[in-house]
Amino acid sequence: MRADHATLLRALSALLAYPDAELRAALPEIAAAVRGASALDAAARDDLVALAEEIAGLDALEAETRYVDLFDRGRTTSLNLFEHVHGDGRERGPAMLELRQRYLDAGLEPRGGELPDHLPVLLEYLSCRDEAEMREMLGDCAHILRALGNTLLRRGSRYAAVPAALLALADAPGLDPDAPTPPPEDIDRTWEERPAFEAPMPDDPRPPRRAS
């Protein structure tokens, strides 16, 4: 893979990472990498740099809270790709194992606590592969990237610049701000904790169940 493609993919991966102190310290370097990315047009580069500058300009707690609220509070903006396809269904496990094995076959051992289908992890992997594989894999998940990006656009988030850039790298149709909004899904609220105990009905004479 060309060096500028690899550097750009790592920069895009970083922009989607949790904005902790280490990432915030690297934002000037990330922005510089984006500015030098010939694979994207000027408008795409400007949008990505604006995202980096926005993150840098936020209070650390505000940046972290916004990130969690945006990416960890529902399926439609999840960065775990298979969650968009399989949800919590049993098909997700085998797909995850297959993707992890693909990383291992390439001599790359995933580190950290993120799942193999976490988009920043996938981008780190692709930064080590050739352009043909990059376009193939980004093309395979283009419908997910487009849905994610359109949702971020509707929410007025500059993070939409990242899936837009990935679609450009895949030579796939870009984001559509006028795309119809999908109907709300109850499954998008599965992040909420379920109560540990069930309260008795008002006319139920039985005492509440006790934990064993």
Rank of each mutant, 00 (worst) to 15 (best):
Y103I: 10
F82N: 02
G36K: 02
L16V: 04
R146N: 04
L169A: 05
A199L: 10
C141G: 03
V121N: 11
R194M: 15
L119T: 00
P183Y: 06
T190L: 15
G89N: 05
R75F: 00
R210M: 08
G112R: 04
E133M: 11
E64K: 11
D72Y: 05
A43E: 12
A211R: 15
A25F: 13
G89M: 05
L9Q: 01
S127D: 00
A132S: 05
L167V: 14
R155H: 13
A50N: 03
A168F: 02
A179P: 08
A43H: 10
I187P: 14
M1K: 07
A25W: 13
P28L: 11
F71A: 07
L8G: 05
R129M: 11
L23Q: 06
A179H: 09
L123D: 06
R100A: 12
R102M: 14
S38D: 11
L40N: 00
A31T: 03
A63W: 03
L152W: 00
E83V: 08
L8C: 06
L138V: 02
R111D: 12
T65N: 14
R135Q: 09
R75K: 00
L79W: 00
A39S: 09
A42K: 04
G112T: 06
A32G: 11
L122D: 03
R90M: 11
R35S: 14
D140N: 06
T181S: 15
A147I: 04
A52K: 00
G93F: 12
P94K: 04
L166E: 06
A42I: 06
P163F: 03
Y18S: 00
A37Y: 04
L79T: 00
R102Q: 15
